[in-house]
Design a protein around this nucleic acid. Structure first.
Lengths: 131, 131
DNA sequence: CTCGATGCAAAAGATTTGCACCCGA
DNA sequence: TCGGGTGCAAATCTTTTGCATCGAG
C-alpha cells in the first residue's frame, strides 16, 4: 500500500469529518491542495477495495464514509440536509424474510426523509403565514 | 390524465411483465413501435408521480415496477432482478430515534440487495470454476 | 530504477431540457 | 381549439478511461 500525498489528504478529510462525502465534496474540501477529480475517484475506489471506506448511493451519487464501526443510515432533513444517524436493525427486521426466501443479502439501502425539529417548526410557521 | 399511445404502450409492458425495468429495457421491448427515450423517461416519471409505478436504483440505473398495493419494499436479486416483497417494520425500528431527535418523518426508502436462491447457487459455482 | 499513482482531456452512460410541432379531450 | 405530450438534438452530471509523466519504495 502506497501512502501517497493524495491518499493521505483524502483519508484526513474522512477522519476530520465523520460524514458521508461524495467525490465532489472532497474536491471542495481540498481547495488549498487540489487533487484531480479522477484521482479522487480512483482513491475512493482504492480505499473501498481495502475495506477502509464504505459507500452508499443517494440520488445517483456515490457517498463514502469511514468504515469504523458498523454501517450508517440517516434520517435526512429535506430542508436543511442535516443527517441524524440511526441504529440499523434491518437484519433483525429481515430475519424471517431471509429464511423464507433463502435470500443472500449483500447490502441494503435505507434512508429516512423528513424534517428536523427546527425545520419542522419553520414549516409550520411558514404554512401559517401562507394561509 | 391523458392516456396517450405512448403511455398505453409503456403501461402494457409493465402489465405483461411484472418486473423491474429501466428506460432502456422499455425502449428495447418497443422495437416495433418506437418511442423516444426522452419520452419514455418522462412517461416513467409521470406514472411514478401518479403512484402507479415505483422505482428503485441499482448501479446508478433507475428501475421501475408496477405498484400493486400500498407500501412495499423488496429484496432485489442483483443478478436476475427478481423482487421479493418484505414487510415494512421501519416505523417500529425508528421509534426511539424519532423520539430522541424529535424528527418528523415524511417518507423512507428501503431496498435490500443480494442474491436469490438460484443466483446464489450459480455464483458459488462460478467462483469455484474460477479458482 | 520500476511500476503504480496522478493530471489532463476526452469519453461514456444515464438522464434532462429547450424547442417546435403534434394530438387527445 | 389548446395545453399537455412528443421527438430530436443538445446539454448535464457523475464517473471512467487512455495516455504521458511523475514519484514512492
Amino acid at each position: 500500500m502506497r501512502l501517497t500525498h493524495s491518499r493521505k489528504l483524502v483519508l484526513d478529510i474522512f477522519q476530520n469529518d465523520n460524514a458521508l462525502l461524495c467525490a465532489e465534496d472532497i474536491n471542495k474540501k481540498l481547495s488549498g491542495e487540489a487533487i484531480d477529480l479522477s484521482t479522487i475517484y480512483r482513491t475512493l475506489e482504492y480505499f473501498t477495495n481495502k475495506d477502509i471506506l464504505g459507500k452508499s448511493t443517494i440520488d445517483k451519487v456515490t457517498y463514502y464514509y469511514l468504515k469504523e464501526g458498523d454501517h450508517h443510515h440517516y434520517m435526512i432533513c429535506t430542508d436543511c440536509l442535516v443527517r441524524l444517524p440511526i441504529e440499523c436493525e434491518i437484519d433483525k427486521m429481515l430475519h424471517k424474510n431471509i429464511k423464507q426466501y433463502k435470500f443472500k443479502v449483500t447490502s441494503h439501502d435505507l434512508t429516512i426523509y423528513g424534517y428536523c425539529t427546527d425545520c419542522a417548526k419553520n414549516h409550520k410557521e411558514h404554512r401559517k403565514s401562507h394561509g
